[in-house]
């Protein structure tokens, strides 16, 4: 059995365990407190949420699995925050380790990176929860608000300069298209970025294929 086959096997076993405990959580609470939701109320609330987030979820699986690799996929979709943390973290690690994403070395580095990032995130949140009464007044202060409002610009500014300068030929068209769309289409706001990621990827892939066929990349 190859390393990849083993990772799929372990990944599925872990997925059964983690899916099981996460999905069992509401049932356990209902049993403990002796309180079950009214079924129709539950369906009414679930329907609009499921329509949106199941669609987004399925798109995310198709979009991110190739970038995360085998180990990263089994882990990343449990621990979440893919586009704002796990994917950039894994790509930065592969870049610095000078390995390619489609190689087994890339798979190993990506998995180590995502696992570490997941553990560190969980530790930071757990420490925050333990100290929440002390931290809440500080973190909710107006002075610090701009710093936490701008995490994504801070992340993608640093990453952007590296990737745009390196892959300028591929990046220039999708960046211009996305900037124009987000500036001129009022419908596109911070809530629609999840939908626009696959759109942007498709545009980039078509353009990259065009450049590749002409031997320009």
């Amino acid at each position: 059995m190859t390393y990849m086959d083993k990772m799929h096997k372990y990944g599925r076993i872990w997925a059964l365990i983690t899916c099981g405990v996460i999905l069992a959580f509401p049932f356990v609470l209902a049993i403990i407190f002796g309180a079950w939701p009214d079924f129709l109320t539950f369906l009414n609330a679930l329907y609009p949420i499921a329509i949106t987030f199941w669609t987004v979820g399925i798109i995310e699986v198709i979009t991110y699995t190739p970038m995360l690799g085998v180990g990263g996929t089994y882990l990343g979709f449990v621990t979440g925050n893919l586009s704002s943390l796990k994917v950039p973290c894994a790509l930065d690690s592969m870049e610095k380790a000078e390995v390619k994403a489609d190689s087994e070395e890339g798979e190993v580095i990506s998995t180590i990176s995502i696992a570490t990032s997941s553990i560190v995130t969980i530790i930071i949140i757990a420490v925050g929860v333990a100290l929440i009464s002390v931290l809440m007044p500080v973190l909710e202060s107006d002075i610090l608000a701009p710093a936490f409002d701008n995490v994504l610009p801070a992340l993608f500014g640093g990453l952007g300069v590296v990737y745009i300068s390196r892959y300028f030929k591929i990046a220039i068209l999708p960046i211009c298209v996305m900037l124009l769309l987000f500036i001129f289409v009022p419908l596109l706001d911070s809530g629609t970025v999840g939908v626009m990621i696959p759109v942007s990827m498709v545009i980039t892939l078509i353009y990259a294929r065009y450049l590749y066929k002409r031997g320009k990349v």
């Binding site: 999708p174 419908l187 970025v193 990827m201 892939l205």
Partner: peptide, 28 residues
């Protein structure tokens, strides 16, 4: 395959660059 993997990340990056200017220009 190398170009494809790069393109996927560049696509994601482009969408986020768009997101950063989403409060500028025409807004609901």
């Amino acid at each position: 395959m190398d170009v494809l993997m790069t393109s996927m990340f560049v696509g994601m990056l482009s969408a986020f660059l768009g997101f950063i200017v989403c409060d500028l220009g025409f807004v609901n």
